[in-house]
């Protein structure tokens, strides 16, 4: 049954949301990403897998120009969002990050109330004209983050007081509140216990209806569970990119097979 639905999913083609061509990333002298070409579809979960230090997080951070905050990082090649180069001089990285949201490895709620955490993005970007609209955005985002029922009675409580899993869902709600088109997730479950992980994974599957989701994960089971497309990175190279079911059942590259069967990484 699951196998069936996976094949069904694979069959549905979506528009290309992000397309990366010949991307090179350097950290000072270190060539961290080499010749990466990848096309990320809309309304799809794309997983980046690979051993530690293979460059998957670095590449993810290129997609919303988070690497701009690191002085020594240089990027070459083209990354197109809806056909426009995001590294073009005319693109404001701050504006871009509102369109390409990000969820981090460690839950990082701001030391503010739950409400203010979620309202942070909308307030900065002026998405709400009045308090009622803002309330609406906050509620909708918290619902999308699958945490509304747990926090609706204590929106004034500090976000840092929640449990780890709740904090991460709050961070997802916070990212969703600015209505991004793409949601980048950098190992969102690595600091969570299995139950919280299951909740977040379920949430990711729901988010797929509205967003294009890119998730970096160390857990191959997680990649297999939540994603439709998988990219395998190794030593800065994109080794293989394809349908998740194909990558996990019938990998083309021997390195992918070694990694998936646990011989490397």
């Amino acid at each position: 049954m699951t196998q069936m639905s996976k094949i069904e999913r694979a069959a549905t083609m979506h528009d290309i949301k992000i397309s990366a061509k010949d991307v090179q990333v350097y950290y000072g002298e270190n060539h961290a990403i080499k010749d990466v070409n990848v096309e990320i579809e809309d309304k799809t979960v794309t997983a980046f897998i690979g051993p530690s230090g293979c460059g998957k997080s670095t590449f993810l951070r290129c997609l919303n120009r988070m690497n701009d905050t690191i002085d020594i990082c240089r990027i070459k090649g083209d990354i197109l969002l809806d056909g426009e180069d995001i590294y073009d001089k005319r693109v404001d990285p701050v504006q871009l990050r509102a369109k390409v949201g990000m969820v981090f490895q460690k839950p990082n709620p701001f030391p503010k109330s739950i409400y203010d955490n979620v309202a942070y993005g909308p307030r900065i970007h002026g998405l709400a004209r009045n308090k009622a609209e803002l309330d609406e955005i906050v509620e909708k985002s918290l619902r999308r983050g699958a945490i509304w029922d747990e926090v609706k009675d204590r929106l004034d409580a500090p976000g840092t007081g929640l449990s780890g899993g709740q904090q991460q869902r709050l961070c997802i709600a916070r990212a969703v509140a600015t209505e991004p088109e793409v949601l980048l997730m950098d190992e969102p479950c690595s600091a969570l216990d299995p139950i919280a992980t299951a909740q977040v994974e379920e949430l990711i599957d729901e988010l797929r209806q509205n967003f294009s989701v890119v998730i970096v994960t160390h857990s191959m089971q997680q990649a297999a569970r939540v994603s439709q497309k998988t990219a395998f990175f190794h030593l800065g190279n994109l080794v293989e990119f394809g349908e998740t079911s194909q990558i996990f059942t019938n990998p083309v590259d021997p390195r992918t097979e070694s990694y998936i069967t646990g011989r490397i990484g």
Binding site: N64, M66, T69, V94, Q95, L96, R97, A98, K99, G101, M102, V103, F104, Q105, K106, N108, P109, F110, P111, K112, Y120, G121, I124, H125, C171, R174, A175, T178
Partner: peptide
């Protein structure tokens, strides 16, 4: 740093991040 990253990731500028996240923290 994750606190700042969170703010930048939501499309905040540096001074917005400093004023609304870093200084309150």
């Amino acid at each position: 740093q994750t606190m700042r990253d969170g703010s930048y990731g939501l499309g905040a500028t540096q001074s917005e991040t400093v004023r609304q996240v870093v200084l309150p923290a």
